[in-house]
Amino acid sequence: MDRILYGDNQFFAVNHISDAKSMEQSMKFKENDAIIATLDQAIEAGIDTFMCTTHDRIAFVCDAVRSNPEKYKDFKIYPCMPYAHKYANAVTELGIQGTIKQYVPGNFFGSMFKGGKALVSKDYLAIMELLVDAEMKMFEGVKTPVVFLQNVITDLLLGLGMDEILKGFHDYVREKYDVEPGFITMNLPKLAETLEGLGIENPIICASINSANFRMSGGKELYEETLRTKKIRVIAMQVLGGGAIPPKEALGYVCGLPNIESILFGASSKRNIDNTVSTIHEFDSK
C-alpha cells in the first residue's frame, strides 16, 4: 500500500466536528466535476490511491478513470463497502427483510420468503456475496487492489461474535476478485485479536489513530501496544481527530508509531492537501 491515501469524507459532507462545515462541503462538491478537480489536485501532490465509500456518486469517478486511461494509469481505488447510510435509511423505511429484497440483485429471495422458510447458512453467505458483487459493479475496469468492509458492519459483526461472516468476506474478496480484503474498525485491539483467532494472517486494518485518543476504543495505550505486538498492516485514519488537533502535532504522533503502513486523510483544498503530504514526508524523512 502507498504511504499516503486520500479519503472521500469531504466530498460527501461527512464532517466529524461541524455540521456547518458539512453543509458547506455539500455545496462545494455539488457538481461531480468539483470532485474530479480536487482528486486531480491530490494526484498532482503525488497521491495515487483514493479510498472511498461505495457511494452512488463514485460511479462518476470510475467513469472518469476508465475514459482517461493514460492520465490515471497509476491511479487506484480502495472501495469501502457498503455506503452505510443507504442501507440504514432503507432499513428504517423497509425493515431488514425489505432492504435485502431491495438490494440483493436478481430473484434470489422470491421463493424463499414466500415459503416463510428459515434460511440455511449458505444462503447468508450467498447474500453477503451478492451484496459485495452489487457494490463492486461500478469499479469494473478500475484498479482496486484492496477492498474494505466499512466499520459499522465490521464492528457490528465483531460485537455480535459473527466472526464467520468476517472470514467469509475476507475469503470471498480474495477468491472472486483476487485482491486484498481489508477491514475498517473503531475497535482495533479487539478486531486484531479476532482476526488472528480466525487464522487470517497479517490482515489490513484501517482504524482511527490520533494523539487526541479520539475513537480509539479501549484507549491509546492499548492501541499502541497492539501496534507493537500484533502482525497487522495498519492504515491510520482520523489522524487529525476530525480537525481538532493541529496538523503538525497530529502527523508527528502518527508518523512516530510503529507498524503504520499508511495514513489516510481527507482535505478539500489544494493548500491543505499539499501541506498534509509535505508534512508527512518531512516526519518520515527524520
Binding site: 466529524h16 466536528i17 461541524s18 459499522v152 464492528d155 457490528l156 460485537g159 473503531m186 475497535n187 479487539k190 487526541a212 485518543n213 479520539f214 475513537r215 480509539m216 476504543s217 479501549g218 484507549g219 481527530g241 476530525g242 480537525g243 481538532a244 488537533i245
Partner: peptide, 17 residues
C-alpha cells in the same frame, strides 16, 4: 469546543460513543 475534546473513551464503539 468540539465533541472530540468532550468525549470520554468507551471500551467498544459502534455508531457513536
Amino acid at each position: 469546543k468540539y465533541v472530540t475534546q468532550l468525549t470520554d473513551q468507551v471500551d467498544f464503539y459502534l455508531r457513536g460513543e
